[in-house]
Design a protein around this nucleic acid. Sequence first.
RNA 1: GCCCCGGUAUCCCAACCGGUAGAGGAAGCGGUCUCAAACACCGUCCAGUGUGGGUUCGAAUCCCACCCGGGGCACCA
Length: 839
Amino acid sequence: MSEPAETQEAATYDVTAVEEKWLQVWKDLDPFRADDASAREKRYALTMFPYPSGDLHMGHAEVFALHDVVARYWWLKGYEVLNPMGFDSFGLNAENAAIRDNEHPATFTYANIAVSTESCKKFGTSFDWSRTLNTSDPDYYKWTQWLFLRFYERGLAYRKESPVNWCPVDQTVLANEQVIDGHCERCGNEVTKRELTQWYFKITDYAQELLDNLDELEKTWPDRVITAQRNWIGRSEGAHVTFPLVEEGAQRPSRNRASEITVYTTRPDTLFGTTFMVVAADAHLARELVTDDQRPAYEDYLEEVRKASDIERLSTERPKTGVFLGRYAVNPVNGQQIPIWAADYVLADYGTGAIMAVPGQDQRDWDFAKRFDLPIIRTVRPPDDFVDDAAYVGQGPAINSANDEISLNGLGIAEAKRAIIDWLESKQSGKGAVNFRLRDWLLSRQRYWGAPIPIIHCPVDGEVPVADDQLPVVLPELRGADLTPRGVSPLAAAEDWVNVECPKCGGPAKRDSDTMDTFVDSSWYFLRYCSPQDDTQAFDTDLVNAWGPCDVYIGGVEHAVLHLLYARFFTMVLNDMGLVGFREPFSAQLNQGTVINQGAKMSKSKGNGVRLGEQLSAFGVDAVRLTLVFAGPPEDDIDWAEMSPSGSLRFLQRAWRLSGDVTSSPGTSPEGGDVALRRITARTVRDAEGLVDGFKFNVLVARVMELVNATRKVIDTGGDSGAGGADPAVREAAEAVTILLSLVAPYVAEEMWERLGHQPTVARTSWPTVDESLLVEDSVTCVVQVRGKVRARLEVVPDISDADLEALALAEPDVVRAIDGAEVRKVIVRAPKLVNVVV
RNA sequence: GCCCCGGUAUCCCAACCGGUAGAGGAAGCGGUCUCAAACACCGUCCAGUGUGGGUUCGAAUCCCACCCGGGGCACCA
């Protein structure tokens, strides 16, 4: 092809001009608006909405690039796609910035949202911006409050006093899920405990189902999320066992005192080895039980425990501490009186906050017994080579475990458990029980920038819900120093706001001054996207059922047990309320890796940050997107230092050049074109489908590159017909390249599409059709092995019979030579690809 | 400590149900173009799959043990 202007230097397109041109065209065409009324099959592509912390960064770019592949693919495949984007816009960053700069959190929040939205559009994403939402908008959080009230009505939102996680830096309580290794999930500081009355969601009511449904989700969710959730829910099976207390004479008025202690144990079979009991030092039970004599010692100990941070408390290396409470209980299985201790190795909020200690079979109890010189009885026989200086936790026959009515001796652990549970149940001293590690979700926060909890506290009427028609409870206008954390919510000090009339009695009352955890906001946003402007309800059930559940959910693993568990819980509750037609919100999930640099997480202190904006202006949106998608499997981390955005741009230029070399007219039938190229095109298009479905985007890109190379070759060498760029197979291939490329590099694809003589937009054209006959190979290479070594290759028809192939193979001179007269013991034939001669 | 995932060329990564270890890219090297270079284009080099065993006609793929890396849980009774 003679294009003199391009002979000197390879032609290139102007990245910036192309971006400016098509951004405007898309703005006019608005091609990604999801139509509720569409007759097409619906798909819901969801990506975790960001917190508007400033402008977009490399992390956002990666998720959006990956996510866009799927969403655009679905459009091309003929689905009506709901692909919304919004902002998780409540939260502490804006609040802290507001305090620092004497501003209102909304100022930062909405400025950041505006910047991020623009960047997101420039990034070429296919989001439907007509459905955008911000969780900090009153017409959104109105419905967050409305949902809270529905949970409250059902007893799923309640208040209790309990030792809770407290972040001294952020000056607020935290849910268990927000404490990572004893540190605040947000600011990274050490968390301490406080005894406070707080609001909880009763997520534990759903623990079993949250666990069970994972079996099904396992097929379409990443492994690590499944295991993280299973571990977090932490189901265990055991028994509750009740130990009566020994009453100690008349000096002890028994008032409301407990007369028994119930414990949870996973090893009821070891009950005969229980030589003492331990109550969590900070549990109410400990305070109730302690005798006057022991009270001073207990108080001192409790003081000590409270001072220790969680980090110290949870260290397994730390020696056991504790104090005797002065009282005794009776082991129901043998009538033995055993002392009751308080210690901090028992947790107040797990099980019943008290344990039966079996030092012979539990290492923690063993350590405690050794420290305080308590008796040890083995109830499982260790193997002969067992060194007798630790608890024995392995399998073995029960020993020392009999009374007049029952003997466990000789039974294995599982049998012994069953037997003792039966016996306990018959004596009404206990019963089989299941326990979960999962705790209820602590949702109140002592901060300003969140949805106020719509409850009024009245000295007469107690908790009074705000009436639905009074929602939203709008945040008062506070800024700067008014927002300074002081251990209680800044809302408590907003006199005009907090003091109200009780809706019931009309007397003076106060609003609840806490705000909701921002994870409440994000537990239902994907439902709101289905009817984001509806001011009559939180979401439209019919539309939610039409679009949902989300067919794919793409986001970071950091939410494996936070957001993803909460959103699942919300969906189940809403399904129970009849508001949602499904119980699991996210049918499939993909967690992208992290973008790192030079082997380390990007951070200011390391000075290894990569600015998205700089990358975009240096290489263009398409090249950056392509680099992110091509880097490797989406779930792997990407080390930007190892990537080559310039290589990506080079490829895009190569691809673009194809569109200029096609000389046939649009609509030309590919029939009669170069068959080899047509086969590659057909195979690439067909394989691309499975590759997108399987999230193997990196392989998809590799296949498109392959197709570009093959097309180039036909153009340059002429191909079968010698027609080169005029060969209709070249047009077919170039159009396939363009459409496939549009999933990753929308700008250049649009430009190519136009050069190929088509109207915009390539994003809403159809997926290329595949001529099935081209997928059938007319010959395949068969490998002939002798002793496992390849000795010959044959070109054969694909449907050759085993017998024919064997005969053909054994007749090959190279094969005969390799056998060298040895006895052929066996011939394995896997037609049409392989023959293996065993000699 | 327990559980899960992964180790393939110099690097990032492919490889269907066990069947020719290589699709793609980066880097390197050589060439074309150029006064020269950059760009671009063409070509080319590179591993026997972490280690040791086993199953099999045949193992990157399946099984066992270990090493290394990543993740989850962890005083949860």
